[in-house]
Computed example of a mutant assay.
Amino acid sequence: MPIVFIHGVNNRKGPGYDQVVGTRDALFRDVFLAAAGLPDTGVINPYWGDAGVRFAFNLDSVPTGREHAVTLGSAGQDSFFLLAAAASAAAPDAPLPDAVLLTLARLDLDAALDLLYLAAVHVAEGDEAQSVALAAPLAQYALAHRAAPPPWLAPTEPPTLVDDEQFIRRLQEDLQAAEPEPVGPPVVRLGFIGEVWERVREGVDRLHHEAADFVGKSAWNAVRELLVPTVPRFLGDVFVYLEGRGSTSDPGPIPDRVMAALQEGMRGRTADDPLIVVGHSLGGAIAYDMLSRFCTDTTADVLCTVGSQVGLLEEMKVLAVSDDDTAGRKVAKPPNVEHWINVFDYNDVLSYKLEPIFADVIDYSYPSHDLLRAHGAYFGQPSFFQRLGVRVQEVRGR
């Protein structure tokens, strides 16, 4: 099944970029497609970040309070700083530095499993096999315990679980017990002494080291340090795209690249292999512009806009097909889009609903529980791919 993923703002090639893309593709293949009940024919990733905004002084005008942390991409040397801040701020009470995961798991198991996965991936040094080996089992475990957490996680007197090492051991035992025996060629397994769990422990150790800096720190300080530097690039990318979007006869550089990817996906579309278009953030608005105006001969079986500003931009009437005459009336879904799913997160102030604005769109809320990194959190969490796959299967079955 061809998937075209259109990234949003704040994406630039650099240290860690290829690992982020490889890990995201692996999650699409091994979690999303399995949940959607669809075959794998690859992910197409058009890159347009280098055509976005450029800052003459490298954002030296932005006050952050922690200047070395201004890494605006989705990966890099400050990844653990971001993860630790998000984990520490998510808990209602300041967690002990060596019990960040355990504290978070008792509040929200999905969030803790996603954080464990992200910490492990960040130290895997691009080892896609290890990322794949961990993602699907964690997503399945979270789904199996959606109604109720495992009994061993409940607080007891005297306490039986006091730190993250004990939490990892119990989780590891559950996953190992549920792991089927391999059939055919050897595969990377989740065994107790496997490299995968070594990476988990290494990642959690680094998380503990960074989390110590945030225990007792005011939430506002963390928010300012982590969120303020992203706003200029978000606004800049939006302005650059709208100003340089061009027309159908003379498209700008960003539409030109995305159209080529959509056409490639269209060539791989068959009756059995639908075309799924996923747009994150501004990528959702770009996807809508392309399908509604620039690429009307491309049929998207499912359009998924995630953490996107399509609704806001339509209210402002700045999308490619926006028409002031429709003010107050719902806008029709593009006829070449069979199904449209929109995902927003209440924690993500850059995500917007679509059902009040567009006809024949389904809004779904997704709780990332990641207040500080909500806008970029979706595609790093295995549970998100699991839930999105289930929703895609549901809408296609209607």
Rank of each mutant, 00 (worst) to 15 (best):
M1K: 02
P2V: 09
V9H: 05
K13P: 08
G16K: 12
A26Y: 00
D30Y: 14
L38A: 07
L38S: 00
P39W: 06
P46T: 09
W48Y: 07
G49Y: 04
G52S: 04
V53Y: 01
R54T: 14
N58L: 06
D60N: 15
S61A: 11
E67C: 04
A75D: 15
F81K: 00
L82M: 11
L83S: 00
A85Q: 10
A94G: 14
A99C: 06
V100W: 01
L109F: 02
A112F: 12
L115R: 12
L115H: 04
A120D: 07
H122F: 11
D127W: 13
A154T: 08
P158K: 05
P159N: 07
T160M: 09
L161S: 06
I168M: 10
R169S: 12
A177Y: 10
A178T: 09
P186W: 09
G191A: 15
G191I: 03
E195K: 09
V196W: 03
R206I: 06
L207I: 07
H209L: 13
A211L: 07
F214S: 02
V215G: 07
P229D: 06
R233T: 15
D237L: 10
T248C: 06
D250R: 09
P251T: 14
I254T: 15
V258F: 00
A261H: 01
R267G: 15
G268F: 11
V278R: 04
S281H: 12
Y288Q: 02
M290T: 04
R293N: 07
F294M: 07
C295E: 15
T296W: 02
A300D: 09
D301E: 15
V306Y: 07
M316D: 08
A327F: 03
G328T: 11
P334I: 08
E338Y: 06
E338D: 11
H339R: 15
D345Y: 03
N347Q: 11
D360Q: 13
V361F: 06
S365H: 08
Y366H: 11
Y366R: 00
L371E: 03
G376R: 05
F384N: 02
Q386L: 06
